[in-house]
Computed example of a mutant assay.
Amino acid sequence: MIIAITGFALPKPITHGEARSIFLSTAPTYQDVPGLLQKHYLLSEDGATAGGVYVWNSQADAEAMYTPAWRAFVREKYGTEPTVTYFDSPVMVDNVAQKVFTY
């Protein structure tokens, strides 16, 4: 399993409510993306940085998302250049399912 964390500085801080509205407007674009298991939107406490935590089946699936077109979408939507950092996740604890998964 691959975790990708994206982030970008916002041109001006936004509130939780503003972030929720913006994030809901983009959420449909992430539904049914091949290999994407989960996406968690992020907003820093001061509202100046946003991003996401993505859980992927594979590195190839993740890399297929973060194309020049995706970067342009983020630049156009938020006015800033995103960063993407990949992590291998060999073990996951799921307290809802009461299970530990290995990959």
Rank of each mutant, 00 (worst) to 15 (best):
I3F: 06
A4C: 09
A4G: 07
I5R: 05
I5L: 10
T6R: 02
G7Y: 03
G7W: 02
F8L: 15
F8Y: 15
P11S: 12
P11Y: 14
P11A: 05
P13Y: 06
I14E: 08
T15Q: 09
H16F: 09
H16M: 08
E18I: 13
E18K: 11
A19N: 03
R20W: 05
S21W: 03
I22Q: 14
L24S: 02
T26S: 05
T26W: 03
P28V: 13
T29Q: 15
T29F: 08
Y30F: 14
Y30S: 03
Q31R: 04
D32H: 13
D32K: 13
D32F: 10
V33H: 05
V33E: 00
V33Y: 05
P34L: 09
P34E: 14
G35Q: 00
Q38E: 13
K39H: 07
K39G: 03
K39A: 03
K39W: 02
Y41T: 13
L42V: 09
L42M: 12
L43W: 12
S44N: 14
S44A: 14
E45A: 15
D46F: 14
T49N: 14
A50V: 11
G51W: 05
G51R: 12
G52D: 09
G52H: 05
G52Y: 05
Y54P: 06
V55D: 01
W56Y: 10
W56D: 00
W56V: 12
N57A: 11
S58F: 09
Q59E: 08
D61W: 04
D61R: 02
E63N: 07
E63K: 04
A64W: 10
P68I: 01
R71C: 02
A72M: 07
R75D: 12
E76Y: 03
K77S: 01
G79R: 04
E81V: 15
P82Y: 04
P82S: 02
T83S: 11
T83G: 01
T83F: 02
V84D: 00
V84E: 01
T85D: 09
Y86C: 06
F87A: 06
S89G: 06
S89R: 15
P90C: 13
V91H: 08
M92Y: 05
D94V: 07
V96R: 00
Q98C: 12
K99Q: 15
K99S: 10
